[in-house]
Nucleic acid binder design. Sequence first.
DNA 1: TATGTTTATTATGTCATACATAAAAACGAA
DNA 2: TTCGTTTTTATGTATGACATAATAAACATA
Lengths: 235, 235
Amino acid sequence: MNEAVFKESLSELDTSSLVDKVEAKLVELLQQRKLHVGDAIPKEIELASLLGVSRTVIREALLRLRVMGLIESKKKKGAVITSPDVFGILSKSMNPHILNQDTLREMFEIRLVLEIGMADFIFQRITPEDVVKLKEIVSQEPPATEQHLFNIEHEILFHGKLYEITGNATLKKFQGMLLPIFDYVHNSGLLKKQLQPKRYVSHKGLVDIIENGSPEMFRNAMRNHLENHFARLFD
Amino acid sequence: MNEAVFKESLSELDTSSLVDKVEAKLVELLQQRKLHVGDAIPKEIELASLLGVSRTVIREALLRLRVMGLIESKKKKGAVITSPDVFGILSKSMNPHILNQDTLREMFEIRLVLEIGMADFIFQRITPEDVVKLKEIVSQEPPATEQHLFNIEHEILFHGKLYEITGNATLKKFQGMLLPIFDYVHNSGLLKKQLQPKRYVSHKGLVDIIENGSPEMFRNAMRNHLENHFARLFD
DNA sequence: TATGTTTATTATGTCATACATAAAAACGAA
DNA sequence: TTCGTTTTTATGTATGACATAATAAACATA
Protein backbone atom coordinates (compact mmCIF):
# COMPACT_ATOMS: atom_id res chain seq x y z
CA MET A 1 0.00 0.00 0.00
CA ASN A 2 2.26 2.73 -1.18
CA GLU A 3 -0.48 5.27 -0.98
CA ALA A 4 -1.25 4.54 2.63
CA VAL A 5 2.39 4.78 3.62
CA PHE A 6 2.71 8.03 1.76
CA LYS A 7 -0.30 9.49 3.45
CA GLU A 8 0.85 8.38 6.84
CA SER A 9 4.30 9.87 6.58
CA LEU A 10 2.73 13.01 5.24
CA SER A 11 0.32 13.30 8.12
CA GLU A 12 3.23 13.10 10.51
CA LEU A 13 4.33 16.54 9.41
CA ASP A 14 0.78 17.54 8.95
CA THR A 15 -0.95 17.97 12.24
CA SER A 16 -2.19 21.31 10.98
CA SER A 17 -4.52 21.87 8.10
CA LEU A 18 -3.45 22.82 4.62
CA VAL A 19 -4.54 26.37 5.16
CA ASP A 20 -2.45 26.55 8.31
CA LYS A 21 0.61 25.51 6.39
CA VAL A 22 0.06 27.94 3.57
CA GLU A 23 -0.57 30.72 6.04
CA ALA A 24 2.59 29.87 7.92
CA LYS A 25 4.50 29.79 4.67
CA LEU A 26 3.32 33.22 3.68
CA VAL A 27 3.94 34.71 7.12
CA GLU A 28 7.39 33.18 6.99
CA LEU A 29 8.04 35.04 3.77
CA LEU A 30 6.99 38.27 5.40
CA GLN A 31 9.23 37.64 8.36
CA GLN A 32 12.22 36.93 6.20
CA ARG A 33 11.76 40.34 4.70
CA LYS A 34 11.60 38.78 1.32
CA LEU A 35 8.56 40.93 0.93
CA HIS A 36 8.31 44.57 1.84
CA VAL A 37 5.46 46.92 2.47
CA GLY A 38 3.86 47.82 -0.82
CA ASP A 39 5.13 44.76 -2.61
CA ALA A 40 2.54 42.76 -4.45
CA ILE A 41 2.32 39.05 -3.80
CA PRO A 42 1.63 36.50 -6.52
CA LYS A 43 -1.89 36.03 -7.80
CA GLU A 44 -4.10 33.47 -6.16
CA ILE A 45 -3.87 31.07 -9.06
CA GLU A 46 -0.11 31.37 -9.25
CA LEU A 47 0.20 30.72 -5.56
CA ALA A 48 -2.12 27.77 -5.88
CA SER A 49 -0.05 26.05 -8.53
CA LEU A 50 3.15 27.21 -6.85
CA LEU A 51 2.28 25.59 -3.54
CA GLY A 52 0.36 22.73 -5.06
CA VAL A 53 -2.96 23.39 -3.37
CA SER A 54 -6.31 24.57 -4.55
CA ARG A 55 -7.26 28.18 -4.93
CA THR A 56 -9.76 27.66 -2.13
CA VAL A 57 -6.97 27.06 0.34
CA ILE A 58 -4.96 29.98 -0.95
CA ARG A 59 -7.93 32.26 -0.64
CA GLU A 60 -8.56 31.24 2.93
CA ALA A 61 -4.92 31.73 3.88
CA LEU A 62 -4.84 35.14 2.23
CA LEU A 63 -8.07 36.02 3.95
CA ARG A 64 -6.50 35.29 7.30
CA LEU A 65 -3.58 37.55 6.52
CA ARG A 66 -6.05 40.20 5.42
CA VAL A 67 -8.03 40.00 8.64
CA MET A 68 -4.77 40.21 10.55
CA GLY A 69 -3.97 43.34 8.63
CA LEU A 70 -0.86 41.98 6.96
CA ILE A 71 -2.08 42.38 3.40
CA GLU A 72 -4.69 44.28 1.48
CA SER A 73 -6.17 42.95 -1.72
CA LYS A 74 -7.46 45.13 -4.49
CA LYS A 75 -9.68 44.04 -7.29
CA LYS A 76 -7.22 43.72 -10.10
CA LYS A 77 -3.91 44.65 -8.57
CA GLY A 78 -3.69 41.55 -6.45
CA ALA A 79 -2.68 41.66 -2.83
CA VAL A 80 -0.05 43.97 -1.40
CA ILE A 81 1.83 43.89 1.86
CA THR A 82 0.74 46.44 4.41
CA SER A 83 2.31 47.42 7.67
CA PRO A 84 -0.16 46.07 10.18
CA ASP A 85 -2.05 48.57 12.21
CA VAL A 86 -1.67 46.59 15.38
CA PHE A 87 -4.60 47.86 17.32
CA GLY A 88 -6.72 48.90 14.40
CA ILE A 89 -7.29 45.22 13.85
CA LEU A 90 -8.62 44.78 17.32
CA SER A 91 -11.19 47.53 17.19
CA LYS A 92 -13.67 45.28 15.46
CA SER A 93 -13.81 42.64 18.15
CA MET A 94 -13.39 45.32 20.80
CA ASN A 95 -17.09 45.72 21.15
CA PRO A 96 -18.57 46.17 24.61
CA HIS A 97 -21.51 44.00 23.73
CA ILE A 98 -19.34 41.11 22.73
CA LEU A 99 -16.74 41.06 25.47
CA ASN A 100 -17.59 39.46 28.74
CA GLN A 101 -17.87 41.47 31.89
CA ASP A 102 -14.55 40.49 33.39
CA THR A 103 -12.71 41.53 30.27
CA LEU A 104 -14.61 44.79 30.18
CA ARG A 105 -13.62 45.61 33.73
CA GLU A 106 -10.04 44.69 32.99
CA MET A 107 -9.91 46.98 29.99
CA PHE A 108 -11.31 49.68 32.20
CA GLU A 109 -8.48 49.05 34.61
CA ILE A 110 -5.85 49.11 31.91
CA ARG A 111 -6.88 52.59 30.95
CA LEU A 112 -6.17 53.73 34.50
CA VAL A 113 -2.81 51.98 34.45
CA LEU A 114 -1.83 53.69 31.21
CA GLU A 115 -2.74 57.20 32.26
CA ILE A 116 -0.79 56.96 35.48
CA GLY A 117 2.17 55.25 33.90
CA MET A 118 2.67 57.53 30.95
CA ALA A 119 3.90 60.50 32.94
CA ASP A 120 7.52 60.29 31.88
CA PHE A 121 6.66 60.30 28.21
CA ILE A 122 4.45 63.34 28.62
CA PHE A 123 7.20 65.27 30.35
CA GLN A 124 9.83 64.12 27.90
CA ARG A 125 7.99 65.02 24.75
CA ILE A 126 5.59 67.83 25.51
CA THR A 127 5.98 71.01 23.45
CA PRO A 128 5.02 74.59 24.31
CA GLU A 129 2.20 74.31 21.79
CA ASP A 130 0.87 71.31 23.65
CA VAL A 131 0.74 73.31 26.86
CA VAL A 132 -1.18 76.06 25.12
CA LYS A 133 -3.61 73.54 23.71
CA LEU A 134 -4.10 71.88 27.08
CA LYS A 135 -4.87 75.20 28.73
CA GLU A 136 -7.32 75.98 25.99
CA ILE A 137 -9.10 72.71 26.55
CA VAL A 138 -9.24 73.28 30.29
CA SER A 139 -10.60 76.78 29.83
CA GLN A 140 -13.47 75.40 27.80
CA GLU A 141 -14.41 72.84 30.38
CA PRO A 142 -18.17 72.81 30.94
CA PRO A 143 -19.26 73.22 34.56
CA ALA A 144 -20.11 70.04 36.41
CA THR A 145 -23.80 69.64 37.17
CA GLU A 146 -25.59 67.59 39.72
CA GLN A 147 -26.57 64.94 37.22
CA HIS A 148 -23.35 64.74 35.32
CA LEU A 149 -20.18 64.90 37.30
CA PHE A 150 -18.25 65.44 34.14
CA ASN A 151 -18.81 65.86 30.46
CA ILE A 152 -17.74 62.81 28.52
CA GLU A 153 -16.72 64.65 25.37
CA HIS A 154 -14.58 67.01 27.36
CA GLU A 155 -12.98 64.15 29.27
CA ILE A 156 -12.06 62.48 26.02
CA LEU A 157 -10.70 65.73 24.64
CA PHE A 158 -8.44 66.36 27.61
CA HIS A 159 -7.21 62.86 28.25
CA GLY A 160 -6.90 62.17 24.55
CA LYS A 161 -4.60 65.15 24.27
CA LEU A 162 -2.42 63.67 27.00
CA TYR A 163 -2.08 60.44 25.05
CA GLU A 164 -1.21 62.46 21.98
CA ILE A 165 1.51 64.31 23.86
CA THR A 166 3.28 61.06 24.70
CA GLY A 167 4.25 60.94 21.04
CA ASN A 168 3.32 57.28 21.00
CA ALA A 169 0.92 56.70 18.13
CA THR A 170 0.34 53.10 19.12
CA LEU A 171 -0.64 54.17 22.59
CA LYS A 172 -2.99 56.75 21.15
CA LYS A 173 -4.65 54.15 18.97
CA PHE A 174 -4.95 51.93 21.98
CA GLN A 175 -6.78 54.66 23.78
CA GLY A 176 -9.12 55.13 20.86
CA MET A 177 -9.93 51.48 21.17
CA LEU A 178 -10.52 51.69 24.88
CA LEU A 179 -12.86 54.66 24.65
CA PRO A 180 -16.10 52.83 23.85
CA ILE A 181 -15.25 50.23 26.46
CA PHE A 182 -14.61 52.81 29.08
CA ASP A 183 -17.77 54.65 28.28
CA TYR A 184 -19.78 51.48 28.41
CA VAL A 185 -18.36 50.25 31.67
CA HIS A 186 -18.75 53.64 33.22
CA ASN A 187 -22.40 53.91 32.32
CA SER A 188 -23.53 50.33 32.68
CA GLY A 189 -24.26 48.80 36.03
CA LEU A 190 -21.08 46.83 35.82
CA LEU A 191 -19.32 48.73 38.56
CA LYS A 192 -20.58 49.80 41.91
CA LYS A 193 -22.14 53.20 42.12
CA GLN A 194 -19.83 55.68 43.70
CA LEU A 195 -21.23 56.74 47.05
CA GLN A 196 -20.27 60.36 47.08
CA PRO A 197 -18.62 61.30 43.83
CA LYS A 198 -16.00 63.92 44.38
CA ARG A 199 -13.60 65.75 42.18
CA TYR A 200 -10.06 65.46 43.38
CA VAL A 201 -7.18 66.88 41.38
CA SER A 202 -8.73 68.76 38.48
CA HIS A 203 -7.66 68.94 34.87
CA LYS A 204 -6.28 72.35 35.62
CA GLY A 205 -4.32 70.91 38.49
CA LEU A 206 -2.82 68.33 36.16
CA VAL A 207 -1.79 71.00 33.68
CA ASP A 208 -0.17 73.03 36.44
CA ILE A 209 1.89 70.02 37.41
CA ILE A 210 2.87 69.37 33.82
CA GLU A 211 4.15 72.93 33.66
CA ASN A 212 5.88 73.19 36.99
CA GLY A 213 6.11 69.72 38.43
CA SER A 214 7.72 66.36 37.78
CA PRO A 215 6.65 62.97 36.46
CA GLU A 216 6.41 61.72 40.05
CA MET A 217 4.07 64.51 40.98
CA PHE A 218 2.04 63.94 37.85
CA ARG A 219 1.62 60.23 38.56
CA ASN A 220 0.33 60.92 42.03
CA ALA A 221 -1.91 63.71 40.80
CA MET A 222 -3.33 61.55 38.05
CA ARG A 223 -3.90 58.76 40.53
CA ASN A 224 -5.81 61.20 42.63
CA HIS A 225 -7.67 62.57 39.63
CA LEU A 226 -8.86 59.06 38.82
CA GLU A 227 -9.81 58.31 42.42
CA ASN A 228 -13.50 58.07 41.65
CA HIS A 229 -12.83 55.30 39.17
CA PHE A 230 -10.50 53.47 41.52
CA ALA A 231 -13.02 53.76 44.30
CA ARG A 232 -15.65 52.06 42.16
CA LEU A 233 -13.24 49.23 41.55
CA PHE A 234 -11.81 48.77 44.99
CA ASP A 235 -14.41 49.71 47.56
CA MET B 1 -36.01 47.76 -17.72
CA ASN B 2 -37.18 46.35 -14.47
CA GLU B 3 -34.02 44.37 -14.00
CA ALA B 4 -31.78 47.39 -14.35
CA VAL B 5 -33.82 49.40 -11.90
CA PHE B 6 -33.76 46.54 -9.47
CA LYS B 7 -30.03 46.15 -9.70
CA GLU B 8 -29.47 49.84 -9.31
CA SER B 9 -31.59 50.23 -6.21
CA LEU B 10 -29.94 47.17 -4.82
CA SER B 11 -26.45 48.48 -5.36
CA GLU B 12 -27.39 51.58 -3.44
CA LEU B 13 -27.50 49.55 -0.28
CA ASP B 14 -24.66 47.42 -1.45
CA THR B 15 -21.42 49.34 -1.35
CA SER B 16 -19.92 46.49 0.62
CA SER B 17 -19.42 42.96 -0.55
CA LEU B 18 -21.68 40.08 0.25
CA VAL B 19 -19.26 38.74 2.79
CA ASP B 20 -19.16 42.09 4.49
CA LYS B 21 -22.89 42.07 4.87
CA VAL B 22 -23.04 38.54 6.20
CA GLU B 23 -20.25 39.30 8.64
CA ALA B 24 -22.04 42.41 9.84
CA LYS B 25 -25.23 40.43 10.20
CA LEU B 26 -23.57 37.80 12.34
CA VAL B 27 -21.71 40.31 14.49
CA GLU B 28 -24.99 42.11 14.96
CA LEU B 29 -26.51 38.92 16.28
CA LEU B 30 -23.67 38.59 18.76
CA GLN B 31 -24.10 42.14 19.89
CA GLN B 32 -27.80 41.76 20.42
CA ARG B 33 -27.02 38.95 22.80
CA LYS B 34 -29.20 36.69 20.78
CA LEU B 35 -26.29 34.34 21.01
CA HIS B 36 -24.30 33.58 24.12
CA VAL B 37 -20.92 32.11 24.79
CA GLY B 38 -21.03 28.41 24.18
CA ASP B 39 -24.06 28.59 21.94
CA ALA B 40 -23.71 26.84 18.63
CA ILE B 41 -24.55 28.80 15.54
CA PRO B 42 -26.36 27.26 12.58
CA LYS B 43 -24.46 25.04 10.17
CA GLU B 44 -22.86 26.60 7.17
CA ILE B 45 -25.41 25.21 4.77
CA GLU B 46 -28.31 26.35 6.91
CA LEU B 47 -26.85 29.83 7.15
CA ALA B 48 -26.33 29.83 3.41
CA SER B 49 -29.93 29.08 2.60
CA LEU B 50 -31.09 31.25 5.48
CA LEU B 51 -29.29 34.31 4.20
CA GLY B 52 -29.63 33.43 0.56
CA VAL B 53 -25.97 33.31 -0.29
CA SER B 54 -23.56 30.57 -1.21
CA ARG B 55 -21.70 28.49 1.31
CA THR B 56 -18.49 30.12 0.09
CA VAL B 57 -19.61 33.48 1.35
CA ILE B 58 -20.76 32.04 4.64
CA ARG B 59 -17.46 30.28 5.12
CA GLU B 60 -15.50 33.45 4.50
CA ALA B 61 -17.65 35.43 6.91
CA LEU B 62 -17.31 32.74 9.56
CA LEU B 63 -13.60 32.64 8.94
CA ARG B 64 -13.36 36.33 9.67
CA LEU B 65 -15.19 35.88 12.93
CA ARG B 66 -12.88 32.99 13.72
CA VAL B 67 -9.75 35.02 13.08
CA MET B 68 -11.22 37.77 15.23
CA GLY B 69 -11.69 35.22 17.95
CA LEU B 70 -15.46 35.52 18.13
CA ILE B 71 -16.19 31.92 17.26
CA GLU B 72 -14.47 28.58 17.22
CA SER B 73 -15.43 25.88 14.80
CA LYS B 74 -15.00 22.21 15.53
CA LYS B 75 -15.13 19.48 12.99
CA LYS B 76 -18.58 18.18 13.51
CA LYS B 77 -20.00 20.31 16.28
CA GLY B 78 -20.32 23.37 14.11
CA ALA B 79 -19.21 26.75 15.32
CA VAL B 80 -19.69 28.02 18.83
CA ILE B 81 -19.51 31.48 20.28
CA THR B 82 -16.41 32.17 22.30
CA SER B 83 -15.62 35.09 24.46
CA PRO B 84 -12.91 36.73 22.40
CA ASP B 85 -9.44 36.54 23.79
CA VAL B 86 -8.81 40.14 22.97
CA PHE B 87 -5.06 40.11 22.88
CA GLY B 88 -4.61 36.50 21.99
CA ILE B 89 -5.84 37.46 18.56
CA LEU B 90 -3.12 40.01 18.19
CA SER B 91 -0.23 37.76 19.07
CA LYS B 92 -0.07 36.40 15.56
CA SER B 93 0.45 39.68 13.83
CA MET B 94 2.50 40.87 16.77
CA ASN B 95 5.68 39.64 15.20
CA PRO B 96 8.81 41.74 15.59
CA HIS B 97 9.86 40.94 12.06
CA ILE B 98 6.65 42.21 10.59
CA LEU B 99 6.04 45.39 12.54
CA ASN B 100 7.85 48.50 11.53
CA GLN B 101 10.47 50.02 13.76
CA ASP B 102 8.39 52.89 15.08
CA THR B 103 5.68 50.54 16.20
CA LEU B 104 8.24 48.28 17.84
CA ARG B 105 9.70 51.15 19.83
CA GLU B 106 6.24 52.25 20.84
CA MET B 107 5.33 48.81 22.09
CA PHE B 108 8.54 48.85 24.06
CA GLU B 109 7.45 52.11 25.62
CA ILE B 110 4.00 50.83 26.45
CA ARG B 111 5.51 48.08 28.53
CA LEU B 112 7.27 50.69 30.64
CA VAL B 113 4.05 52.63 31.01
CA LEU B 114 2.18 49.57 32.17
CA GLU B 115 4.67 48.47 34.78
CA ILE B 116 4.83 51.88 36.37
CA GLY B 117 1.11 52.45 36.20
CA MET B 118 -0.06 49.17 37.66
CA ALA B 119 1.13 49.86 41.20
CA ASP B 120 -2.30 50.37 42.72
CA PHE B 121 -3.59 47.09 41.44
CA ILE B 122 -0.62 45.24 42.82
CA PHE B 123 -1.10 46.72 46.26
CA GLN B 124 -4.83 46.20 46.18
CA ARG B 125 -4.80 42.56 45.19
CA ILE B 126 -1.58 41.01 46.36
CA THR B 127 -1.85 38.00 48.69
CA PRO B 128 0.61 36.70 51.27
CA GLU B 129 1.32 33.80 48.95
CA ASP B 130 2.29 36.23 46.22
CA VAL B 131 4.81 37.85 48.52
CA VAL B 132 6.32 34.48 49.33
CA LYS B 133 6.52 33.64 45.66
CA LEU B 134 8.13 36.98 44.82
CA LYS B 135 10.77 36.51 47.48
CA GLU B 136 11.44 33.04 46.19
CA ILE B 137 11.95 34.38 42.69
CA VAL B 138 14.26 37.10 43.93
CA SER B 139 16.29 34.60 45.95
CA GLN B 140 16.92 32.58 42.82
CA GLU B 141 18.13 35.53 40.83
CA PRO B 142 21.31 34.64 38.94
CA PRO B 143 24.19 37.01 39.52
CA ALA B 144 24.75 39.69 36.92
CA THR B 145 27.83 39.16 34.80
CA GLU B 146 29.85 41.55 32.71
CA GLN B 147 28.31 40.37 29.47
CA HIS B 148 24.75 40.09 30.63
CA LEU B 149 23.47 42.77 32.91
CA PHE B 150 20.50 40.62 33.66
CA ASN B 151 19.09 37.25 32.86
CA ILE B 152 16.16 37.49 30.48
CA GLU B 153 14.34 34.44 31.81
CA HIS B 154 14.57 35.71 35.32
CA GLU B 155 13.40 39.15 34.29
CA ILE B 156 10.36 37.63 32.69
CA LEU B 157 9.69 35.49 35.73
CA PHE B 158 9.80 38.41 38.13
CA HIS B 159 7.96 40.99 36.08
CA GLY B 160 5.49 38.41 34.85
CA LYS B 161 4.62 37.63 38.43
CA LEU B 162 3.91 41.29 39.02
CA TYR B 163 1.46 41.33 36.14
CA GLU B 164 -0.14 38.24 37.55
CA ILE B 165 -0.56 39.86 40.94
CA THR B 166 -2.60 42.67 39.44
CA GLY B 167 -5.36 40.12 39.01
CA ASN B 168 -5.97 41.47 35.54
CA ALA B 169 -5.86 38.55 33.12
CA THR B 170 -6.16 40.81 30.12
CA LEU B 171 -3.16 42.78 31.26
CA LYS B 172 -1.22 39.59 31.77
CA LYS B 173 -2.03 38.43 28.26
CA PHE B 174 -0.97 41.78 26.98
CA GLN B 175 2.36 41.31 28.65
CA GLY B 176 2.75 37.91 27.10
CA MET B 177 2.25 39.56 23.76
CA LEU B 178 4.77 42.26 24.47
CA LEU B 179 7.47 39.86 25.56
CA PRO B 180 8.87 38.93 22.17
CA ILE B 181 8.69 42.54 21.09
CA PHE B 182 10.53 43.69 24.13
CA ASP B 183 13.18 41.07 23.74
CA TYR B 184 13.66 41.94 20.11
CA VAL B 185 13.87 45.67 20.63
CA HIS B 186 16.20 45.20 23.53
CA ASN B 187 18.63 43.06 21.57
CA SER B 188 18.39 44.62 18.15
CA GLY B 189 20.19 47.80 17.30
CA LEU B 190 16.92 49.64 17.33
CA LEU B 191 17.74 51.62 20.45
CA LYS B 192 20.89 53.39 21.41
CA LYS B 193 23.37 51.39 23.39
CA GLN B 194 23.37 52.35 26.99
CA LEU B 195 26.64 54.00 27.85
CA GLN B 196 27.13 52.72 31.34
CA PRO B 197 24.45 50.26 32.24
CA LYS B 198 23.68 50.45 35.92
CA ARG B 199 21.32 48.69 38.23
CA TYR B 200 19.16 51.05 40.16
CA VAL B 201 16.39 49.80 42.38
CA SER B 202 16.68 46.02 42.40
CA HIS B 203 13.98 43.39 42.30
CA LYS B 204 14.54 42.90 45.99
CA GLY B 205 14.08 46.60 46.52
CA LEU B 206 10.75 46.44 44.70
CA VAL B 207 9.56 43.56 46.84
CA ASP B 208 10.54 45.44 50.00
CA ILE B 209 8.43 48.35 48.88
CA ILE B 210 5.53 46.09 48.05
CA GLU B 211 5.71 44.76 51.60
CA ASN B 212 6.29 47.97 53.50
CA GLY B 213 5.65 50.82 51.11
CA SER B 214 2.88 52.42 49.14
CA PRO B 215 1.78 52.55 45.51
CA GLU B 216 3.42 55.94 45.18
CA MET B 217 6.72 54.57 46.39
CA PHE B 218 6.39 51.59 44.12
CA ARG B 219 5.78 53.72 41.06
CA ASN B 220 8.88 55.76 41.71
CA ALA B 221 10.92 52.69 42.48
CA MET B 222 9.77 50.95 39.34
CA ARG B 223 10.54 54.05 37.31
CA ASN B 224 14.00 53.93 38.78
CA HIS B 225 14.29 50.21 38.20
CA LEU B 226 13.53 50.76 34.53
CA GLU B 227 15.91 53.69 34.24
CA ASN B 228 18.23 51.86 31.87
CA HIS B 229 15.42 51.37 29.41
CA PHE B 230 14.27 54.95 29.72
CA ALA B 231 17.81 56.17 29.22
CA ARG B 232 18.05 54.30 25.96
CA LEU B 233 14.87 55.97 24.80
CA PHE B 234 15.47 59.50 25.99
CA ASP B 235 19.18 60.22 25.95
C1' DT C 1 -0.47 65.79 -30.20
C1' DA C 2 -3.47 65.60 -26.53
C1' DT C 3 -7.58 64.03 -24.51
C1' DG C 4 -11.73 61.71 -23.73
C1' DT C 5 -14.39 57.33 -24.68
C1' DT C 6 -14.99 52.59 -25.59
C1' DT C 7 -13.43 47.91 -25.47
C1' DA C 8 -10.58 44.07 -23.87
C1' DT C 9 -8.10 42.00 -20.29
C1' DT C 10 -7.19 40.43 -15.79
C1' DA C 11 -7.50 39.06 -10.96
C1' DT C 12 -10.50 38.93 -7.32
C1' DG C 13 -15.41 37.88 -5.75
C1' DT C 14 -19.19 34.64 -5.83
C1' DC C 15 -21.57 30.36 -6.88
C1' DA C 16 -22.32 25.35 -7.31
C1' DT C 17 -21.02 20.67 -6.76
C1' DA C 18 -18.44 16.83 -5.37
C1' DC C 19 -15.57 14.37 -2.38
C1' DA C 20 -12.32 13.85 1.93
C1' DT C 21 -11.96 13.80 6.72
C1' DA C 22 -12.77 13.78 11.51
C1' DA C 23 -15.82 13.62 15.24
C1' DA C 24 -19.97 12.46 17.23
C1' DA C 25 -23.79 9.35 17.51
C1' DA C 26 -25.89 5.09 16.74
C1' DC C 27 -25.35 0.42 16.74
C1' DG C 28 -24.06 -4.29 17.86
C1' DA C 29 -21.58 -8.01 20.12
C1' DA C 30 -19.42 -9.74 24.25
C1' DT D 1 -23.08 -2.31 30.70
C1' DT D 2 -18.97 -1.66 28.02
C1' DC D 3 -16.12 -1.80 24.34
C1' DG D 4 -15.35 -1.63 19.47
C1' DT D 5 -17.45 -0.87 14.87
C1' DT D 6 -20.31 1.40 11.59
C1' DT D 7 -23.02 5.29 10.14
C1' DT D 8 -24.00 9.91 10.01
C1' DT D 9 -22.91 14.70 9.82
C1' DA D 10 -20.64 19.12 9.32
C1' DT D 11 -16.50 21.06 8.22
C1' DG D 12 -12.29 20.94 5.09
C1' DT D 13 -10.58 20.73 0.33
C1' DA D 14 -10.78 20.57 -4.67
C1' DT D 15 -12.52 21.97 -9.10
C1' DG D 16 -14.77 24.58 -12.62
C1' DA D 17 -17.59 28.28 -13.95
C1' DC D 18 -19.20 32.92 -14.18
C1' DA D 19 -19.69 37.93 -12.21
C1' DT D 20 -17.57 42.13 -11.24
C1' DA D 21 -14.53 45.91 -10.99
C1' DA D 22 -10.20 47.99 -12.01
C1' DT D 23 -6.77 48.55 -15.16
C1' DA D 24 -4.75 48.75 -19.68
C1' DA D 25 -5.20 49.01 -24.55
C1' DA D 26 -7.31 50.66 -28.44
C1' DC D 27 -9.70 53.99 -30.57
C1' DA D 28 -11.84 58.26 -31.90
C1' DT D 29 -12.12 63.11 -31.75
C1' DA D 30 -10.57 67.88 -31.26
